[in-house]
Design a protein around this nucleic acid. Structure first.
Lengths: 119, 119
DNA sequence: TTCTTAGTACGATATACGCCGTAGTACGCA
DNA sequence: TGCGTACTACGGCGTATATCGTACTAAGAA
C-alpha cells in the first residue's frame, strides 16, 4: 500500500491564481528553477537535486513548495527522488503567452547583465 | 525655487528588475492600478485619487510607491495632485510582451471568475 | 541490517509586507 | 492669512517570507 504521507497536493487548473504565479516567479531562486525546467523537452521531469540553487536543501524544499502550491510545477515521488515538471499545459491554457513572456524577459535581462559585465 | 522634498525618484530604465516588476504585479491592489492605467490612452496621466482602491489613503500611497520603485509607473507632482502614468515605453523595451501577457492573463482570470458567478 | 542518498519537518531568526491611524506638508484659492 | 484638498511620513501591528541548522523519514544498495 502506498505511503499516504508522500502524496503531494497540487492546485487544480481552475484554482491557479495569477497573483500567486507572479509572486512565485518574483524570487530569483524560483525563477531559476522555472528557467531550468523550461529548457527541458516538454514533459520531461527532473529531480529537485538536478537544479543547483545557491541555498541549503531546506530552503530549496521551501521554494519548490511555493512553486507547486502556486501551480507552476507538478511533483511526484519516484523512488527516493521527487520528480518535478513545469505545468506547461495548465499555464498555457489559463494564461496564454505569460510564461513565455516572463522567460523571454528573464533571458533579455540576463543578456543585458552579461553584456554589462563584459564591458 | 522648487521644493526639493517633492521630487520623486524613479529607477532608470536599465535599473528596472524583472523580479521587482513581477513582485509589484503580484498584489491585487497594484494589479488593479496597472490595469486601470493600461486602459487609458497611452501617455495619459491620472491622479492617484482617480483610482479607487479598497484600502485607506496611506495604504494606497504605499502601493503606488512600490509600483514606482519597481519601475512600473512614473509619478510627477502637478499642483496638489500627483499624476501617474504607466512606463509603457520602458517596459516594452526591456520586457517585450510581458505587460500585455500579464494584462491578458488578468482579464482572462477575471472573465472566468465572472462566468463562475453567473453560474 | 546498515549505509547512503534524497528530500522533509520543525524551530528559530531576521526581514519584509500589507494594513491602519494620526499627524504633517505642499499647493491652490479665497 | 487662513482653509481645503491631496498626498506623505511615521509608528505600530500582525502576518508572511527567506533563510538556516538539526533531526528525521523513505527508498534503494551493500
Amino acid at each position: 500500500m502506498p505511503t499516504a504521507g508522500r502524496v503531494l497536493d497540487h492546485p487544480a487548473r481552475a484554482d491557479i491564481r495569477l497573483e500567486s504565479v507572479l509572486h512565485a516567479l518574483s524570487d530569483p531562486a524560483r525563477l531559476q528553477v522555472v528557467r531550468f525546467l523550461a529548457e527541458l523537452p516538454p514533459g520531461e521531469e527532473v529531480a529537485c537535486s538536478a537544479i543547483d540553487l545557491a541555498v541549503t536543501k531546506s530552503t530549496t524544499t521551501h521554494h519548490f513548495r511555493v512553486l507547486r502550491e502556486a501551480g507552476l510545477i507538478s511533483q511526484v515521488y519516484r523512488g527516493t527522488a521527487k520528480m518535478t515538471a513545469l505545468r506547461r499545459a495548465d499555464l498555457g491554457a489559463l494564461f496564454p503567452g505569460l510564461l513565455d513572456a516572463v522567460l523571454t524577459a528573464d533571458a533579455a535581462q540576463r543578456h543585458r547583465s552579461a553584456a554589462r559585465q563584459d564591458g
